[in-house]
Computed example of a mutant assay.
Amino acid sequence: MNERELPLTALRAFAVAARSQNLEAAAKQLGVTHGAVSKQISALEEWLGQSLFSRQGRALQLTPYGNVLADRVADSIRQIGAACDYVRRDHSYRVISVDAPATFAMYFLLPRIREFEARHAGLSVWIATRLTGQTADFSRNDVVISRGSLAKASVRIGPARHLFEEKLTPVSASSLLRELPVKCPADIWKHKPIASSSRPGDWEAWFERARLGRPLIEGGHRFDHLHVALHAVRDGLGSTIAPRQFFDGTSRRYRLRCPLPDVCYPGESFYAHSTLQPIAAPVEIFLTWLQEQCGFAER
């Protein structure tokens, strides 16, 4: 059925009349005349080709078809009302929507969000993630975080705010490090290397920085994305190369550590952009806090 054909005003009048079982009471609730409600219900019955009420004086009695329609319409109206109440929430409560790369969101942003919301009552952060190669959603988010520079194209966004430059180093599960400790770069040979297709060449670059020659990773685990590779690391299947900044104190929940944090090489930089111009005060608060958190991670 075409949505344009639905007699929504008549359906609302019917729902109120079915609930009150009296046209005068329904008219009072709707703020219209008795005749207006009667006309709406008659039009609805004609459109449906079914009688909805049997009239007994001033009282209304639902017909079997009327009962079916009344239950469904009442439930739909309750759902619509709940949705409107949710959207029309307290104006003192503000949601900040953030579009971020999946690994950054999972390992850097999510572990810190509760601290931000506790510090700033009335502000809440909703996060949407994207994978490498996916386009950021500028239209539905207040903040977009990017790995590497973000081409502005025709989208109007705020100036890039530098968050940090990746310091790429091996990351291992605490359980694996207890079994196979890593005290010097050569000890990493004990671990099976886990690679990700979204970050090709990371192991080779780290081995070069550590002066270990070239790694032998043929036949090893290789996943399409770093955040999937990190799941394998958490399961103790081996180690991977990832930004050191993701695995400071907040990574304890994942039981992941960087055994050689000082043996690293520089990767891409992360930036944050506001999509609102001018920038709303809550978004400015979030961006300032985010840069502060990134500053702590750099130390």
Rank of each mutant, 00 (worst) to 15 (best):
D142P: 04
K152V: 12
A136W: 06
T135N: 09
A153Q: 13
V144I: 10
G148R: 02
R147S: 13
R156T: 08
A136M: 03
P159K: 06
T135E: 14
V144L: 04
A160I: 02
E165M: 07
G148L: 05
V144C: 15
A153F: 03
A160L: 01
D142T: 02
F164G: 02
A160K: 00
L163E: 09
A136E: 10
L150C: 11
H162L: 12
Q134S: 14
D137S: 08
E165Y: 00
S154H: 09
A153H: 11
A151P: 07
S139P: 00
E165L: 05
I157A: 01
H162W: 03
H162Y: 08
D137M: 02
L163Y: 07
G158L: 05
G148Q: 02
V144N: 01
R161S: 14
L150R: 12
L163N: 02
R147V: 12
A151N: 11
G133Q: 05
K152Q: 11
V143R: 00
T135D: 10
Q134C: 02
N141F: 15
R140Y: 12
L163C: 09
P159L: 03
R156Q: 12
R147H: 09
I157N: 03
R140Q: 14
D137H: 06
S146W: 10
R156Y: 01
S154F: 13
K152F: 09
L150I: 10
Q134A: 14
V155R: 03
F138M: 04
P159I: 05
D137R: 10
A136C: 02
S149M: 09
S154D: 15
D142W: 06
L150W: 14
S139I: 11
R161I: 13
N141H: 15
S139G: 02
R140P: 00
P159N: 01
S149I: 11
S149Q: 13
S149D: 14
A151M: 08
S139Q: 13
P159S: 09
N141V: 07
V143K: 00
L163P: 00
F138W: 13
K152S: 12
D137N: 10
H162I: 04
I157V: 15
G133M: 06
V144E: 06
P159R: 08
S146F: 04
R156E: 05
V144W: 01
F138H: 13
S139D: 01
S146L: 00
V143Y: 08
K152E: 13
G148I: 09
D137G: 00
F138N: 06
G148N: 07
